[in-house]
Design a protein around this nucleic acid. Structure first.
Lengths: 213, 213
DNA sequence: TAGATTGTTAATCGATTAACAATC
DNA sequence: TAGATTGTTAATCGATTAACAATC
């Protein structure tokens, strides 16, 4: 495993391997081959092997990779062993759903608090505080928060992003379907459901056309 | 605009153009150039022009594209003018959030009903029915549903997918972080938040390392 | 030793970008 | 006519895949 730059394509495949490896029962064989992994995930063997070579320090010919260390290696590479504190802005339905999702622990993500323009309550179902957005930047600075999750309507997303950046945030995960203008050192990850819907919709159109002849 | 196969990459960019075009005020100029679009979305001019060439029947040199027709062309290409009926399985928080999202109309997506293994209520906040999963396949067949949205835990996702396919569904949008085994003619679109988190997490790790020197 | 599996090097494929020609 | 913009053709870049060598 070397300190090479790893492409986003590889990065996005790693969680798939990880979750499959973790889903295996405790009494499964201690070793697993790239072929087995590839078949289970519907991928090519070579691709899996190449991806794993980037994050692990190698499997053994004829035997495969030690499952336990592979899990550790991927988790370490993805930084899931370090906890990342985050804030969430927009305590609507989606925001609440994310706040309530227990699984983020697994990814080392810890949502500290939610912010909203008009908080109807003081805390979420899970007991996490909901503050007014006016406190956002200060809160981030004071708590050295590095990540912001945006679940506000598109028209407010840029304002929120600006406040997050003013608060010293380094990465933004946004669910608002709009482009954000940010400085070069800030990473924006768009979680845009519209892109998935486009792919699905076009596929269905083609299916319907086909049936009609 | 010809009947060429369009790559998923292009497909995923189209909603971005569309939403930007629609976000422009009514009194904005009737024409818009690829350059303007590219700048607004932080993309390259050539890429935008090439993408648009695939779905529109052309802009005019020196003037650009007619905004109205561009919107129509993209919407038609993506099939947003035809309504797609869908069912959703897993009426948890995420499921409820999706059921309640009004914006799907815009994409021609219409969620008819939700299904759950243990429905605690008979309908959602929005008045859409929640049925027991045992009725899933029959419901899909009877209502000629073509799309299923899976928001159940990973361990139940494959079972649900099988039932959907038995019910005649052609496309699956899944939020469960697990690979689904399906016949070749069924499209599965994975909405996997873990992939986004991986990208974000690695970026933050790098940032932290950098700061420490 | 034989065979399964890893890892690497080369070939292919496709997407993006750059350069240019066409047009209003 | 000049210039902005489109559209196309060629070049580059990077990811995936295939072929091979290394190893236990």
């Amino acid at each position: 495993m070397e300190n090479k730059k790893i492409s986003k394509f590889v990065l996005k495949r790693l969680p798939g391997y990880l979750s499959y490896l973790k889903s295996l029962p405790a009494d499964a064989p201690a070793h697993i081959s790239a072929t087995t992994l590839a078949n289970a995930l519907g991928m090519g063997q070579v691709q899996v092997r190449k991806d794993l070579a980037l994050v692990s320090d190698g499997g053994r010919p004829k035997i495969g990779y030690l499952r336990e260390s592979l899990i550790e290696d991927i988790e370490q590479f993805l930084g899931y062993d370090n906890t990342t504190d985050a804030v969430l802005i927009g305590a609507g339905k989606l925001g609440q759903a994310l706040m309530g999702y227990k699984g983020f622990d697994e990814y080392g993500l810890n949502i500290l608090a939610a912010f909203d323009a008009s908080p109807s309550r003081e805390c979420t179902d899970e007991g996490k505080p909901i503050y007014h957005v006016s406190r956002l930047a200060d809160y981030c600075r004071e708590n050295k928060v590095l990540m912001g999750i945006i679940t506000v309507p598109a028209e407010h997303a840029q304002t929120v992003a600006d406040q997050l950046i003013a608060g010293g945030i380094k990465a933004i995960w946004t669910f608002a379907p709009t482009h954000l203008e940010v400085p070069g050192n800030i990473l924006v990850q768009y979680e845009n459901m519209a892109t998935s819907l486009a792919v699905l919709s076009v596929h269905l159109q083609a299916q319907i056309k086909e049936e009609k002849g």
